[in-house]
Amino acid sequence: MLQGYGPLLLKGLAMTIGVSLAAFAVAFVLGLLGASAKLYGGRVLRTIAEIYTVVIRGVPELVLILLIYYGTPTLIQTLVRTFGPESMSRFRVDFDPFIAGVCTLGLIYGAFATEVFRGAIRSIPKGQIEAGIAYGMTGFTLIRMVIFPQMLRFAISGLGNVWLVLVKATALISAIQLDELMRSAELASANTREPFTFYLIAALLYLSVTVVSLALIKRTEQFAFRGNEARG
């Protein structure tokens, strides 16, 4: 049935998971920075964070992927050739599809993670922060010992949703020729002329990642709130 394209699909699945994990790490960091800027930053940082989340969430993912992968190198080349020395007239910039995909998806879902973290921080009971301050905790110690652990507990569900949507969004980076699952299914479909078979298999593989992810998210939530359940 697979006509020898099974390994290609599995390789594409591995690439999809790799891109997803790397992009999620980028989104996690950007989310923390964005939430911190919105809640604790000055006017400039709050404005930058607000513009970031509004713009990124308002532009389709595919447009951003194409803009960064194709548009940014062209812009850089044009600027260098226009304002640079004559020796740079043949200057060329090429983005690696993996790096471009990871950075773009990380940038996109960092905006969503920002709102998840901001909501999670606001969900922390003020009494816990006040208790930490009463014990003499300030600055980084307070963040590390009180705010960050509590924030993660409240953010698990939201981050889980970000992860699930991000995994599906990796299908869009097939547009920049990265050999992830969707691209592999396209190649197999084109060569065998059996699009239903290979797109169905791709759909089932995406679904399998989702099912496993949901189970892991549920276990993580149970672990994070086990103390609360015991007291309840």
Rank of each mutant, 00 (worst) to 15 (best):
residue 14 A to F: 13
residue 58 G to Q: 08
residue 78 T to Q: 11
residue 214 L to Q: 15
residue 3 Q to M: 13
residue 29 V to N: 12
residue 180 E to S: 05
residue 23 A to L: 12
residue 64 L to T: 03
residue 186 E to N: 11
residue 230 A to H: 12
residue 52 Y to Q: 14
residue 138 T to I: 14
residue 219 R to S: 07
residue 174 S to P: 05
residue 63 V to D: 01
residue 223 F to E: 06
residue 222 Q to R: 15
residue 96 D to F: 06
residue 91 F to E: 02
residue 17 I to P: 00
residue 10 L to W: 14
residue 28 F to V: 06
residue 101 G to Q: 00
residue 188 A to G: 10
residue 96 D to Q: 06
residue 107 L to T: 09
residue 182 M to S: 04
residue 26 V to P: 08
residue 184 S to G: 04
residue 155 A to L: 00
residue 106 G to M: 02
residue 161 N to K: 09
residue 56 I to Q: 07
residue 133 I to S: 10
residue 205 L to W: 07
residue 101 G to Y: 03
residue 232 G to Y: 02
residue 5 Y to K: 03
residue 225 F to L: 12
residue 20 S to A: 13
residue 106 G to F: 01
residue 11 K to G: 10
residue 188 A to Y: 01
residue 190 A to N: 08
residue 153 R to N: 04
residue 36 S to D: 12
residue 53 T to D: 08
residue 202 A to G: 08
residue 82 T to S: 15
residue 217 I to A: 01
residue 118 R to Y: 14
residue 43 R to G: 14
residue 4 G to H: 10
residue 170 T to L: 00
residue 44 V to Q: 07
residue 174 S to W: 06
residue 107 L to C: 09
residue 178 L to M: 05
residue 217 I to F: 09
residue 150 Q to T: 05
residue 105 L to Y: 06
residue 145 M to F: 09
residue 53 T to K: 13
residue 123 S to A: 15
